[in-house]
Design a protein around this nucleic acid. Structure first.
Length: 1141
RNA sequence: GGGCAGGUGGCGAAAUGGCAGACGCGCCAGGUUUAGGACCUGGUCUCGCAAGAGGUGUGGGUUCGAGUCCCACCCUGCCCACCA
């Protein structure tokens, strides 16, 4: 008998498949539907580990099955070849990172080939290949064109000793991984991608996707949308400043415009003077007329703040040009500097001169503020830049109510006109209780000052504040998180006004406020733990405005919807032991309430009396004295099992102490319902199982209530629920907004080994895109890969490469030396697989359509947020540009589990528990390793499986048994040809049945990606086959075909030994005969009172009566002398006899 | 602290609300082999000689019947973390 020699077999068939080009995937095959199965492409780290096998070989089983089932399956692979490890290796070993990477790729390709995976290598994609990254650059330029790529000062990790930028993974505990120096934060101009513009769509479009809910949820969490409100708190200074505001309307506008009137009212309410001049011929304006009208309207002096909206902004600038003495401030919103509008032409184009005297304007005004909305339908980004360049300021990007600042209220304008602090809150319902403001140390207002006036002149303790801000800046983010102790400093000499109460409240700077979240400022109140902690430490007054409201929605006492509520005044009494540090725990058994004594207040009774009475009624203790009340009312809605109605209870929480252990007898029904015990504080925490009890307990310990509830002391909103009040308060005192944790995507990397960002910097023209016909901008060769200490990437060393002509003015310019984050490379690779060789486009639309969107994307859980989110964003941006046809790239996404070392720990070289797949493959074969990985547990669960060396051997054993059956068959056939009879071997009906059951289960399980149970079924079949006399020719062929996707080599070998000439992998998936799955008789379980007490055998078509008879016989002794109350019959499954109680 | 996932033999696990532990590993006993990290047969949740009884993190509930559904709690893992 031939031995199962996996080495020979596997090499032989891998060559055969290669020669026959078995896995070339055509774009279309007649009669076959396309299926795009994607697995994340690997980083070419050097060699393959078990994780790669798990990622590639297991889905390969699915790919093969789908092909046999008639699908045209694209299962591609490539390499995510740019990245830090290559650069590190290059620096360490003085190698060319390109050579290092390409060498690794070549080596790993051989290793992957040893899996026998059905990858179509003709579609291989390598991200460091100029033919690929040319299109990465091209796509980046499209983003830039759309205004989605922009430069911004962004903090990076900086090692002062290595003089280089560090990636997050190069920073270990705040220190440089290489030299151990303290890492600091340094601001650098970096390219960002505006992923935040897509935040809402990235959340909302998740909804219809067929993804596991937990993956969707973690994306939502990552984006972190908070729906809340922005509230403006006006500032008042000890030295009161009053200004004269001049507001200029725009084209077709007038002084009676609602927003101007609103601005006027708001400013006048603060005591300022406001002038709104009428600019003549509003529908057909001319410069001369309008400017002189504005100049005539009032005097301009150092206390004037001039505001211009749209064309009014143009007029304002011309006005400032003509002034003889400087004014205080100029504020422009959606101002016009050139008549090149986004949407259409305007008639005033020729009636204005579009040149401005920048020097005059700058000389005549201390401070200029430019407001811009990137959604503006008229004003382009180009116009904005022109204005910025002209006035030498950076525009403030706003989200106006209407894109061109034409809403009835434009709070952004107001905020910049008068001193206010804008605060973000998700709890507008607590606004009446806002008793202080907190600014993040990095809050822009602290840097800018207000109205050109430095804070130092407004804030009395400014040096102290500056010191605190400087200290906070020094602390790394990590350090700040470590010290939970809150710190802060008050801004003296300035107060904020709570817009609801008109009360002046203090302003603090504290680093528990995060600059990048919301507006970087918050109001503190009594219903937030952090706020309370801070206020307590610094003696800031607090005011509670929310009374807890707890609604029972589950359980026996859940509120019955649609039924009315009966109001009820009650008490909650926390009772302390007379001598020990223990509290009285009451378990109310009928509804399993664990907490304290509670009960209704009788007519005319005061709460304390009622509580004492209830304590005695429920627990018998007679000598309780009131220590203190525990604050205001706690409301609860629940269903009362006593009174059989919905109850709206208003509890008065009280704290009692027992004087002694005097007890009276209590009514027996009370005793049976209440179980009383004495528990310590810690035990109590665990004992309580109702929110209202927990709330009272928290009050006892001075902990704030942070949930929602019913408002009080909140003017007309008192009595409302939080949910009802939030939108109303937000609208009245601010506006509803959303904010996100997601920040824009910083794509600049100060690295050599990446895609060069195709931009050119010109001192005169600013950043310019490289012309598309000049792509790719190839990575230049450099002598070594160390950074030059300038903070720029090693690319800066390639002087001849860096120095180029400006594409616009042809003057001297320099190339961008940063490279792109590798997440950019991997954000579109799946599109390239559809058209990998295209030299004219990143992927032709027609080719994309063959495959996109991806039918199933399998990958690691570590990419759930970043890669998945970036590539979804990328796809959406391309979709908006009309470059792809789908707004979502992946129809389904699955996260696979993780393979651990044999010791159950994550595999790592330092632990010495790394399993070398090459070694195992050499010893046991690729088929064994593939199958073992598929068998180890469910593939798509977020769990970890330790690699079990004995387990692998077990799978090998299984394949040996398959092999043996195959060999016995060959031998037997030979015997037959020599012998007398040539009778066909026929399978017994038993084995035939087992086979058809196996076809069904294996097919279904593979599609559900339950590879482990599919293999279990194959094993069950082989167990049965070994015991059976014979397995027929046909049946053996069927078995090999359903084994083929798991173990492609051995099944190919055995298939050919049967005499077949074509590959088994081109065969059809066998069909099962449903008739063969039916059993003639079934064994059913027989239960008595729900407990299995026996079993019976009945024919499949047995009627209920026959079934019951058979079952009765099986448990006859147990039914003897008992009355059967009910019989439950589940045909084909069980019979349950329920006995009379 | 928050979010999510999960908790079933010695281990990986299986189980449309219907006979808990399929399949594999390990282990035990026997057989076979010159030998083997090979193979074959049987056994293997717990208590019990047995008949039988109990058993899916803990406690409660719904149900004729719960590993599965509901509630509270405990524990573990992953991700995020002073997010207003």
């Amino acid at each position: 008998m031939k031995k199962y020699n996996h080495k020979v077999i596997e090499r032989k068939w891998q060559k055969f498949w290669e020669k026959k080009k078995l896995y070339r995937t055509p774009d279309k095959v007649k009669g076959r539907k396309n299926f795009y199965l994607l697995t994340e492409f690997p980083y070419p780290s050097g060699n393959l580990h078990v994780g790669h096998w798990y990622a590639f070989a297991v889905p390969d089983t699915l790919a093969r099955t789908l092909r046999m089932q008639g699908k045209n399956v694209l299962y591609p692979i490539g390499f995510d070849a740019f990245g830090l490890p290559a650069e590190n290796a290059a620096i360490k070993n003085k190698l060319d990172p390109r050579k290092w990477t390409l060498g690794n790729i070549a080596y790993m390709k051989n290793q992957i080939a040893s899996m026998g995976a059905s990858f179509d290598w003709s579609r291989e994609v390598v991200t460091c290949d100029p033919a690929y990254y040319r299109w990465t650059q091209w796509l980046f330029l499209q983003m830039h064109k759309e205004g989605l790529a922009y430069r911004k000062e962004t903090a990076v990790n900086w090692c002062p000793s290595c003089k280089t930028v560090l990636a997050n993974e190069q920073v270990a505990e705040g220190k440089c991984e290489r030299c151990g120096a303290e890492v600091t934060q340094r601001e650098m101009l970096q390219w960002n991608i505006k992923i935040t513009d897509y935040a809402d769509r990235l959340i909302d479009d998740l909804e219809p996707l067929d993804w596991p809910e937990e993956i969707k949820e973690s994306q939502r969490n990552w984006i972190g949308r908070s729906e809340g409100a922005e509230i403006d708190f006006p500032l008042v200074f000890d030295e009161d400043k009053k200004y004269k505001y001049v507001l200029l309307h725009g084209y077709t506008g007038s002084p009676s415009d609602v927003r101007l009137q609103w601005l006027k009212r708001e400013l006048e309410a603060m005591g300022h003077e406001v002038v709104v001049p009428e600019l003549p011929n509003t529908d057909d304006p001319s410069e001369a007329e309008q400017v002189s009208a504005a100049l005539r309207a009032t005097d301009y002096d150092e206390r004037t703040i001039l505001f211009g909206h749209s064309l009014g902004g143009t007029v304002a600038m011309k006005v400032v040009e003509k002034l003889s003495k400087p004014i205080h401030r100029l504020v422009l919103a959606g101002a016009v500097v050139s008549p090149k509008f986004k949407d259409k032409k305007r008639p005033f184009e020729k009636k204005f001169k579009w040149n401005f005297d920048a020097a005059k304007i700058k000389g005549n005004v201390k401070d200029v503020t430019v407001l811009h909305d990137s959604r503006d339908y008229a004003i382009t980004e180009e116009q904005r830049k022109q204005l910025e360049d002209l006035l030498g300021v950076q525009a403030n990007i706003c989200k106006s109510t209407e894109p061109h600042f034409t809403g009835e209220r434009e709070p952004d304008i107001l905020m910049w006109l008068r001193p206010t602090i804008r605060v973000f809150t998700t709890r507008a319902d607590t606004l009446f209780g806002g008793t202080f403001l907190v600014l993040a140390p990095e809050h822009p207002l602290l840097r800018q000052g207000f109205g050109g006036q430095a804070w130092s002149s407004l804030v009395k303790n400014w040096p102290e504040v500056e010191k605190y801000v400087a200290q906070a800046a020094k602390k790394s983010e990590r350090e700040r998180q470590e010290s939970k102790e809150k710190t802060g400093v008050e801004l003296k000499g300035v107060k904020a006004v709570n817009p609801t109460t008109g009360k002046e409240i203090p302003i603090w700077v504290a680093d528990f406020a995060i600059a990048t979240f919301g507006t970087g400022a918050l109001f503190g109140d009594a219903h937030d733990e952090r706020d309370v902690e801070f206020a307590t430490k610094y003696d800031i007054p607090l005011k509670e405005t929310i009374e807890p409201l707890i609604i029972r929605t589950t359980g026996l006492d859940a509120v019955r919807t649609g039924e009315p509520f009966a109001d009820r005044s009650s008490i909650l009494a926390i009772v302390k032991h007379w001598s020990e540090e223990k509290y009285q725990a009451v378990h109310y058994k009928p509804t399993d309430i664990r907490g304290f004594v509670s009960g209704g207040i009788h007519e005319g009774e005061d709460p304390a009396t009622a509580a004492k009475r209830e304590i005695q009624e429920e627990t018998g203790y007679a000598n309780a004295t009131l220590v203190r009340g525990l604050g205001g009312t706690i409301h609860g809605k629940y269903y009362s099992d006593n009174r059989l109605e919905n109850t709206f209870a208003h509890y008065k929480p009280l704290f009692f102490k027992l004087e002694d252990d005097t007890q009276v007898d209590i009514a027996p029904e009370e005793k049976s319902r209440h179980e009383v015990s004495w528990l310590s504080e810690n035990e109590m925490e665990q004992f309580i199982n109702r929110e209202e009890m927990r709330t009272a307990w928290s009050r006892l310990h001075g902990r704030p209530y942070t949930g929602k509830g019913i408002l009080h002391d909140s003017a007309e909103f008192s009595g409302m629920t939080s949910e009802a009040a939030i939108p109303l308060i937000a609208e009245q005192f601010g506006r509803l907004t959303k904010t996100y944790k997601l920040r824009d995507w910083i794509v600049s990397r100060q690295r050599y080994w990446g895609v060069p960002i195709p931009m050119i910097h010109c001192a005169d023209c600013g950043p310019q895109a490289v012309r598309e016909e000049e792509l790719p901008v190839e990575l230049p060769k450099v002598k070594d890969y160390l950074p030059d200490g300038s903070g720029r990437s090693p690319l800066a060393k390639a002087k001849r490469w860096v120095n180029v002509k400006c594409p616009k003015c042809k003057g001297r310019a320099e190339r961008e030396t940063d490279t792109l984050d590798t997440f950019v490379d991997s954000s579109w690779y799946f599109l390239r697989y559809t058209d990998p060789k295209n030299r004219k486009q990143f992927a032709e639309n027609r080719k994309q359509k063959n495959w996109m969107p991806v039918d199933l994307y399998s990958g690691g859980a570590e990419h759930t947020t970043m890669h998945l989110l970036y590539s979804r964003f990328w796809q959406k941006a391309l979709y908006d540009m009309g470059l792809v046809k789908d707004s979502e790239p992946y129809t389904r996404r699955m996260n696979r589990s993780l393979i651990l070392g044999p010791d159950g720990q994550k595999m790592s070289k330092s632990r010495g528990n790394v399993v070398d797949p090459d070694e195992v493959v050499k010893r046991l074969g690729a088929d064994t390793v593939r199958m073992y990985l598929a068998f180890i547990g469910p593939y798509n669960e977020v769990s970890n499986y330790p690699w079990n060396p004995d387990g692998v051997a077990g799978v090998r054993r299984f394949l040996e048994r398959v092999w043996r059956i195959g060999q016995q068959r060959v031998n037997h056939k030979n015997d037959l040809s020599h012998g007398a009879g040539s009778e066909q071997r026929r399978a017994s009906s038993e084995i035939e049945k087992a086979l058809h059951k196996t076809i069904k289960k294996v097919g279904e399980d593979i599609l559900a990606q339950k590879f482990n149970t599919a293999i279990a079924q194959l094993m069950i079949f082989i167990n049965a086959a070994e015991k059976s006399e014979a397995i027929g020719e046909k049946e053996w062929g069927v078995f090999l075909r359903i084994l083929a996707p798991f173990a492609p080599h051995i099944s190919e070998e055995l298939w050919h030994e049967m005499g077949h000439k074509k590959s088994i992998h081109l065969e059809k998936w066998p069909e099962y005969d449903p008739k063969l799955l039916l059993e003639e008789s079934v064994r059913i379980a027989v239960q008595v009172d729900g407990k299995t007490r026996g079993e019976a055998s009945v024919t499949l078509d047995a009627d209920k009566k026959t079934t019951e008879e058979a079952a009765r016989a099986a448990v006859a002794s147990r039914l003897l002398g008992r009355e059967v109350a009910r019989v439950i019959i589940v045909p084909g499954r069980l019979v349950n006899f329920v006995l009379e109680k």
